[in-house]
Each structure stands twice: as structure tokens, then as C-alpha cells.
Design a protein around this nucleic acid. Structure first.
Length: 146
RNA sequence: UAUGCAGGCCGUUCUAUCGCUUCAUCGCAAGGUGGGGAGGAAAGUCCGGACAACACAGGGUGCCGUACCACCUAACGGGUGGGCAGGUGGCGGGUAACUUCCACCUGACAGAUAGUGCCGCAGAGAACUAUACCGCCAUGCGCCCAUGUAUGGGUGCGAGGUAAGGGUGAAAACGCGGGGUAAGAGCCCACGGAUGUACCAGCAAUGUUGCAUCGGGUAAACCUUACGGGUUGAAAAGCCAAAUAGGUUGCAAUUGGUUACGUGUAACCAGGGGGGCGGCCCGCUCUUCAUUUGCAAUGGGUAGGCAGAUACAGGUUACAGGCGACUGUAAUCGCAGAUAAAUGAUAGAAUCCGCGCUUGCGUGGAACAGAACCCGGCUUACAGGCCUGCAUUUUUA
RNA sequence: CGGGACGUAGCGUAGCCUGGUAUCGCGCCAGCAUGGGGUGCUGGAGGUCGGAGGUUCAAAUCCUCUCGUCCCGA
């Protein structure tokens, strides 16, 4: 849906670059993640939980994200990989809102998406719930500018 | 053609758009272009190797593992071929039990005749050749009966022989038939079985035949024999190395505490080492240290990076050797390399399967399952499909 | 990635090494005692010993494979 909208505006080539998710946009630092779990803020939209923290990143992007699926809830590696891929895909397509908010506030964030459900779901449901989650996240960021 | 058994192979495909990762290339850069991107089990982690670090004269013992024989292999607990045992099926033979032959499957398949242990309950007895329960057979003594008058029968007590029969049990001291005997017993014989041994055949396991012997089971109980194993695993081992803290060294500055006030000065008190005066102690005096700060150097080393780590017991094809596992030669190919961890999402079409209506539409679904140092096996999971061999049945030629 | 332990009645456990009978406590059911309940006493039921295969006359126990749970190392 985003694709068609931006195509209509006429600035196709430049705006399409928004929907990327390369190495530098993924959270990879073990130290940051430890900090995230110790002092991060949480927000839950079933079946997801978003943990975030405002911090200084070593890259230019306004946010880095990671995904996680518990081995306890999904025994097979195939299922865990599939859920993580779906979550990454949904974030990739819906992250411009997050980036805009972060740029306006001149902040950088580390995010982690955790799947807390116990059942497999399809992509449509994952994307709809991720949109809600990210919308709530941006609202919370605007509420607490300090 | 169908069924069964055995073996092998495949295990969704294509297009478009948006993404991820890696390599090459172009570019000052932003980025562009092109190529590669999960499996037969990637799984379980049950074995074996490669590689690495540490240890190591040699021998014995212990511990762990393996176990018919030969071969293959880098190696193996894997594989191939053979032997033996058991099972299934088939054509025959036979009244039947059973069985020649053929095919397939299964086998932790060394040793119980080296030793120790165990074998509940039942049973007389559960292991060095048996404490005889019922029974069978003689026999001593007593009593009773019969008569042909020295024997027979019955019965009680005693002392023997006997493993044929009954009974117990999962299992009873080779099986079975005959001879033999008082009754019996491999005591003897025929057939069969087991063990040892000799000759022959075979590389060997083993087999044929002869001779000797007849000793229950259990080694997935201890054990014996033979062979093998040094230990630890990519979190091994190595290289580069930011920031911060701390270590060491050098240089410079700074003694510490208490009291007073104007908060950096003054006064008072006090420790260790060294030097000087002095023969020595005390004492006097000088200096330094402990402490803190700054700068510089340095080694260890964290985050992170490099590398280990993807071209090798490699794949494919052809030829040759071998019954086969496999090996040799030649040609050809380059076939994932992530690291909080890529290989995905959406739309459309095809293929297959299920359901509904009904003969082409609708709808749902696409087995098991995701590389993490690599390789060779084993084991386990798996929708559906294809191929080969063997056996049987039916039909056709 | 590597290493280790455990699955037994509704719950918690013993038995496994050294193979033949599955133990104990709580809970459950019935009876007695009480006007009734609790407490107490007596009796009883309830077990594929996680699953499959093997060794053995005989397996919860021994061996192999497998499923699940938990723990440890980094």
C-alpha cells in the first residue's frame, strides 16, 4: 500500500529506498541488548512485546532493531526462523513512521521485537499487529520528550 | 496388469515487484551492474577421521570400547562378499510329522570344556556327576493265607539297586528306537545332535569323513581371550586492537593529620628508608618515600576486527580392473558461507492432493524439516511420485 | 555447541546397582464413633512403572533406539 502511494506522488526512485533493512539497521551489539533488558521500556500488543531504549548509536540511522522468538514456545528452528522473517518484513515495510518521529525529536533508539504468542500466524496478521505496535510506540515517544 | 519383498532416485516449478546476504566489477562517494545463496536428512549427536593445542623413553596393570571370517576404506561400532544359525515364501517329495532345492529376511554370531556367582515359587532333587516323592526290581526279619512241603501271595519294619514311567517346573543330567537286564542305565548297537581331535578342501570362518567323549541355563552377571584407544575440542589454537578502569616503568609536582581564620596560608604533632656529623647509642641536620595529580612509554587484554572457515579422503561423465563394497586413468565442473546469525514477503500462473457442486469451476492445502569448522557413516522423521530386480497370479503374443 | 540428571496411583516419592512380591505419605471411597461436621479408628479401591524393540524361563530393574522435562559450562 505504501508502494502505490509513493508511486503516485512521482518521487518513486528516491522514496523507495526507505524500505530497506540492512546490517546497520539491525541491532547487533550484545552490550546494547543487555542494557535494553535492564533499563528498557516495554509496550505490549498481543502477540508482540516491544522493548526500547533511547541511546546513542554508532551508525547514522535513527533506530536499530532486533527480533526474538522464544525457543520455549516454538520447538523447531523452522518455525522460529519463519516468525522472525515475517516480523522483520513487516517492520521493514512500516518503519518510515518511526524514523520520521525519531528525526523530528533528534533521538536514536534501540528496539527489540519479541514474539510472545504460542501459535503460528500468517503474514497479514503479523503486519496488522506490527502497524499498531509501531503507532503506539511513536505516540509514547511524542508524549515523553524528556 | 495387480500384489508382496528388496534396492535406488526425486521431493513443487515459473514470472513480476519490494527486500536480505556474499563475491566480482564500475565509481571520489552516494550507489549501479552481473553471478552465487539450505537438506536428504541440514535433525539426533551414536561412532570414525581431518585439523589444533597440550602431554609423551620403554614395559606392566587398571579403565573404556569392539567381537564368526576375509576384504574395502584415511578411519570406523560403517560397507561388500562368504560361512553358520533361525525365520518366511515357492516348486517338488511324503498319508502325516517332516523335508531336498531355490529366493528373500533377521542375527550384540568369541568363550559356559578356565574360575566365581545366580536359577524366586513349585518340586525328592536346580548342578561335578544327584540324600529317590510316587513307582519299578531284588532282598533280611516278623506276622497272616494257600497248598503240590519248599515254594508262592499279601502285609509291617529295615537295608539296597534303579533316572525306564508318573508328578513339579522355563529347564530334570544327549534325543529316539532296539538289544540287554532282577529292574534299569550310552552298558551295547543303528539313526540323529553336540564338543574335542586327525586327514583332506578352503586365505579363513567352516565343511566332508574317521576317531574319542556326552560336560543344564545365564557372559545385554562378574569374568577370560584377542585386538584397539594419550587428553581436550572451533567456546580448540592464533593475529591486530579503540574507549574506560587498573598494572609496570620513567619524568614533573605533591609529606600526612589537627587547630585558627580571610580557604591557602600559619602554628603544632607524627611514621619508614637513605646520607652527613660521630668509634657506637642517643641526639642534631639534610634528603627521599608512602599518598595524590599530570604527561609519556609499555605489556596483558575487553568491545570490535582478521583468520581458523569452505578446493577437497570434491562432484559429474567415460573407459579399465574386481562377484561386490571400491579402486585406477582421462576429461570436465566450481556447487552457501551467515555470526542476535542471510536464503524472505506480496501478486499471478502451472503441477499434485482433499472437499463441494458437477465434468470445469469454486474453495482449502503443499511431507519431514533450516547450514554454523569440515568430511565419511549410522539412527530417527517424511505428503506424494518415479525407476530397477525377484516371486506369485491373470491375460495376450 | 558441549556435558549431565530424571520420567513409577490424582500429587510427592521408595524400589533399579545385586532381575522373580511395586513401598510410604497426602488425597479418594466405605464403615464405626458424633445430634451433625472436623478430628480419630478400621477396611478398601486406584499402576500400560514415558514409548518401541531386544536379552532372559521371567524386565520397573539389564541393553539399544526414541519422546518429554529439568539442570550445568560459555
Amino acid at each position: 500500500m505504501y508502494i502505490t502511494r509513493f508511486k503516485n506522488t512521482g518521487e518513486c526512485k528516491a522514496t523507495l529506498k526507505q524500505f530497506t533493512l540492512n546490517k546497520e539497521e539491525r541491532l547487533k551489539s550484545r552490550k546494547l541488548m543487555d542494557e535494553l533488558f535492564v533499563s528498557g521500556k516495554t509496550l505490549t500488543v498481543f502477540p508482540f512485546r516491544l522493548v526500547w531504549i533511547e541511546t546513542k548509536l554508532l551508525v547514522d540511522y535513527p533506530a536499530q532493531m532486533a527480533v526474538s522468538v522464544s525457543k520455549r514456545n516454538f520447538k523447531h528452528a523452522v518455525d522460529r526462523n519463519r516468525l522472525k522473517r515475517l516480523m522483520r518484513e513487516a517492520y521493514r515495510k512500516n518503519k518510515p513512521g518511526v524514523y520520521d518521529t525519531a528525526k523530528q525529536l533528534n533521538k536514536q533508539y534501540a528496539l527489540m521485537l519479541i514474539y510472545t504468542g504460542r501459535k503460528m500466524v500468517d503474514y497479514a496478521e503479523v503486519e496488522s499487529k506490527i502497524i499498531i505496535t509501531l503507532k503506539k510506540f511513536t505516540e509514547r515517544c511524542n508524549e515523553t520528550p524528556a
